[in-house]
């Protein structure tokens, strides 16, 4: 239920409101954001290890692309875990 309601509301508010909301971006020094810098990447993944959507991170498209690429690289090198990996181990 939550999703359609939220969407409907934002549509009604008109574009100005949506843009204003979008502007709350985390302060992100891009040179610090690197795939090797896994502690700061943890901000952008959920507890399970999934990459958070732009809606939640509030990043720009370009920043989000950098983040998601970095997370995927960090995962490959074992700096971050893949989502739902521990489930496999436990069962």
């Amino acid at each position: 239920m939550a999703k359609p309601r939220a969407r409907g509301r934002s549509n009604k508010k008109g574009k100005g409101a949506v843009v204003a909301q979008r502007k709350r971006r985390p302060v992100l020094p891009l040179e610090d954001l690197d795939w090797k810098n896994f502690p700061s990447l943890r901000r952008f993944v959920s507890e399970r290890g999934k990459i958070r959507s732009r809606r939640i991170t509030g990043l720009s498209r370009r920043q989000q692309a950098i983040v998601s690429k970095s997370v995927r690289r960090a995962r490959e090198m074992g700096l971050l875990a893949y989502p739902d990996q521990d489930r496999k181990v436990r069962h």
Partner: peptide
Amino acid sequence: REERPARAGRGSGGPRRRER
């Protein structure tokens, strides 16, 4: 991790907020 588990997709129907 100090963050709470992200349950943003399933939270209350209000406008979404970033946790931090």
